[in-house]
Simulated scan of single mutants.
Amino acid sequence: MSFQRRSEVQYLKSLLQTLFPVIVAAAVFVLITVTIFLIRSEDPGSFSLQDYRGQYYINVHNDLHRRRLRVEIEKRNFPDRPEGIILDQSISPGTIVEPRQSLRLVVNQHQPLLTVPDLVGTGQAGISAALERIVIGDQVYSLARGSTSYVFDDGVPDGTILAQSPLPGQKVDPDFPVDFLVATSNAYRGKQITPSELKELPVDLAYEFLLRTGASFTIKEILSPTRPAEQGRVADARLTGKDQYELDVFFQKPSAAFASGYEQETVEIPAEYRGEKMCSLYHYPESDPQSRKAIFRQKLSSEKATVVFFRRNTEVLELRCENKVVSRKVLSPDFSG
């Protein structure tokens, strides 16, 4: 082998020895990068949901994101609890969940709560002015105007507000919607209810609407809300006979009962009162029985009746048939705030 040839071979060997560590390092880097990409691009499998209650949301945000959960935040205001702490979760700890499953967290948020004004008995012309300017300190807040439903009532001036939801005095977040039931002298418009008029109404307003027209109803199905704003609202309504309706209602029972919130209850109708006897179901604050409000007043042929209603602090749920108290249950919050 010539001297020149040997020099070329020696040069190539030297170059290969120099570049070999670099090539190996580059290959390892590419392999690691591809592995990380594949891991991150794959959804984690099903897993047991942990208990996030009592933890700060900021501390669990990354874990929730890593598990690909679709998180919705519902804000509550409890001044005696730390801001940002998770108060409740829509899925119970230990439940097996899948990636991209929806999870609603109730997070304590120290923001001003607005008191819903009392507009019952006033004219609907003043709704906007009452909701659009609510002053707290040097800040101006507002509530949203929700739906307006009309029912026949010739005993009050046209346009008089007969009922509202949320109830007067209730504490809500800024921009929370307020729905109204308003009197009309137009018998054609206000004496008959179409199912579409009941859809998306808060159930307490839907009950008032049905009571005032003499209609009866049954809750056919309870559906899980897909967002917090649906809780306690009518998901769908169907006319099943003359002045008889079936309602589907959005409701999900929280793991803890707050100072106020929607409740689902089933009441039993004694056999002797089924069919032709008039039964009425009321709820009222335990401290004020005179303020009782009817959920329904109708003849029931079934053994049980399911209702969803808004409870304010400690309330009594009372069933009366033929003006006799048939059952009475006290419902209390787990903690106030």
Rank of each mutant, 00 (worst) to 15 (best):
Q101R: 10
V156Q: 06
T194L: 13
N108E: 12
G121Y: 14
T95R: 14
V28R: 01
A25Q: 10
F335L: 11
Q89A: 02
A125V: 02
P82Q: 04
T226A: 08
R311N: 05
L319A: 02
E74S: 09
S41W: 12
S224I: 08
A294L: 13
G137E: 04
R227E: 13
D175Q: 12
A25G: 14
Y282C: 11
A144V: 03
R70A: 15
F37T: 03
Y141S: 08
R100N: 04
R53G: 03
S41V: 06
L201S: 08
L38N: 15
E42I: 00
H61W: 05
Q298W: 11
P44H: 00
E322R: 13
Q298A: 08
K293C: 06
P99S: 09
S301T: 07
P177L: 11
K242N: 07
V24E: 12
G261F: 08
R81T: 01
E42P: 03
G232F: 12
I136Y: 08
V22C: 02
D118L: 11
F296Q: 06
V203D: 15
S301Y: 09
A215Q: 00
P228V: 01
Y284P: 05
L31T: 13
G54T: 12
I96D: 01
G337T: 07
V71S: 04
P195K: 09
A144K: 09
R76I: 11
R40V: 12
L113N: 09
V178N: 05
Y207R: 07
V22M: 08
P225M: 13
V307K: 01
I58D: 15
L198I: 04
R233V: 11
E286C: 12
K242I: 08
T240A: 15
V71L: 14
F20R: 14
R328P: 01
T218G: 11
T218H: 13
L205A: 07
V116P: 05
S165K: 10
L331M: 05
T35D: 13
L64P: 05
P228T: 01
E72V: 09
V30D: 08
L239F: 06
R212C: 03
Q50I: 13
A305H: 10
K171S: 10
I91N: 11
S149I: 08
D243I: 06
I23Q: 00
S147F: 03
V182T: 00
P177H: 14
K253R: 13
F258L: 02
G275F: 02
F309S: 02
R53M: 06
P202F: 08
N313V: 14
V156P: 00
P44K: 01
P225Q: 06
Q164P: 00
Q55S: 11
F29K: 13
Y207N: 08
S92L: 15
L211Y: 02
L113W: 02
D154L: 12
A229G: 07
F176T: 15
I23T: 00
D51E: 09
I96H: 03
Y52V: 04
G169K: 06
Y245P: 11
D288P: 04
Q231L: 09
S291D: 04
H65K: 14
F37P: 00
P157W: 07
S149M: 05
